[in-house]
Design a protein around this nucleic acid. Structure first.
Lengths: 218, 218
DNA sequence: CGTAGTTTTGAGAGGCGTCAAGGAGCGTGG
DNA sequence: CCACGCTCCTTGACGCCTCTCAAAACTACG
């Protein structure tokens, strides 16, 4: 992160608290007062927004090292819920302390800005996916994104365990769980992947890439 | 914004530069180096992302007072393009100066954080719209959002001129321009709105609200 | 070993996309 | 001032992709 020892030391005080979240329970819910950002240390989260009439929509999946809670800053309360998809642990980053320290260290300040900007860019990518891709393309893009992030954390490039249900995948990708399941099956028929419940083996990354983006890589 | 006179004075130096953007030309393009945020002073913008294969997708429409360019912070270059939909003027906010001043004034710092958080929350709303609403609901939500933002700027609660084409609306809402047009026509048949090209008159706001959210307001 | 939750698969329906043609608005130039 | 062409918008017909409804198979967990 480019901080010197003194800065590291100060930062340590900000992130001193940790919190465990059991599978299925929430780190925060929509409407909860906002106090802190959370850095995922272990485990896997989903964030979801809920409409007035009860439908809800998964806005993202977060894994180790990713930051949750930036939605809460605007109105001093969270606008989405964060649910652990498996037993998890997070670092609690009290936001007022983060702001105070940011005023002292420009590197930290810029880092915070980058994290928020990254979230905005990610959201734009999801909007592109939801707005202009078909079911096959969405699922292919989803798998590639997931495996790429896992790979960056030292896991396999081609093998993964899904931490979320078909319904949650569907909610995230704007499709019904049946369509998710059918699309998985189609990929399997075409020899692109192996799926067995939550286990996925990507046999042909290029083929997935071509589905997402036919022109360039196909 | 809650700044005292001294702070206002300093801030004035940050926003000293202005820039005119003619209708149809871009404030910045994807890939352009990031230097500044832009506050819309007058006019109307769209932002759009482009896939490797040339498809592009409108991620938002920005009007007076709204901030553009936060996508550029992460990678020091813009990931989307901002195009003026009518002759416009923006305040240029050099981001390094904004960071420097933010370290001095916590009110400004928090304001910047809020602006970015607001964008994240807005994006989540669009994801919800794209992921779990049907064409009618999307267009109704779009109209309500637009007219509400215009009303907040002193314009009519029920009347508006669309600054964007059917195709741009469609791109934003994840539907084809023909579907946008057809849905407008259906709303007209039902007596909810009057549409004549770019001019829209909302005759029954409640009906639109019910379309977006049947359970609660219907 | 039984029960609840998850996933798969099928059949049928419908919403939206695609293709196509015509019409309206607007700027440009004769 | 009118004609022309360009862009944008509307509308129709048809087809496909995805949703809906339904049932069965599999897994996990008590």
């Amino acid at each position: 992160m480019g901080l010197n020892p003194e800065e590291m030391d100060k930062l340590d005080h900000v992130i001193s608290t940790r919190k465990r979240v059991k599978r299925g329970s929430s780190l925060f819910n929509a409407g909860d007062p906002f106090t802190s950002l959370y850095a995922v240390r272990s485990g896997f989260f989903k964030t979801s927004v809920t409409t007035a009439d009860g439908r809800d929509h998964v806005t993202g999946f977060q894994m180790t090292g990713e930051i949750i809670g930036m939605d809460g800053i605007v109105h001093d309360k969270h606008s989405c819920a964060a649910i652990a998809l498996e037993d998890a642990e997070v670092c609690v980053l009290p936001f007022d302390k983060l702001e105070t320290l940011s005023r002292e260290f420009s590197t930290l300040q810029h880092h915070v800005h980058k994290i928020m900007s990254r979230e905005i860019v990610r959201d734009h990518g999801v909007m592109l996916l939801l707005g202009s891709m078909r079911a096959e393309e969405r699922l292919a893009a989803f798998l590639l994104n997931l495996v790429q992030r896992l790979h960056a954390r030292g896991f396999s490039k081609s093998e993964l365990i899904l931490r979320m249900t078909r319904e949650e995948i569907g909610s995230y990708l704007g499709m019904k769980l049946e369509t998710v399941s059918r699309t998985f099956s189609r990929f399997m028929d075409e020899g692109i992947i192996d799926v067995k419940q939550r286990y996925v083996l990507i046999k042909d990354t290029d083929a997935l890439q071509k589905i997402v983006n036919p022109q360039v890589s196909g």
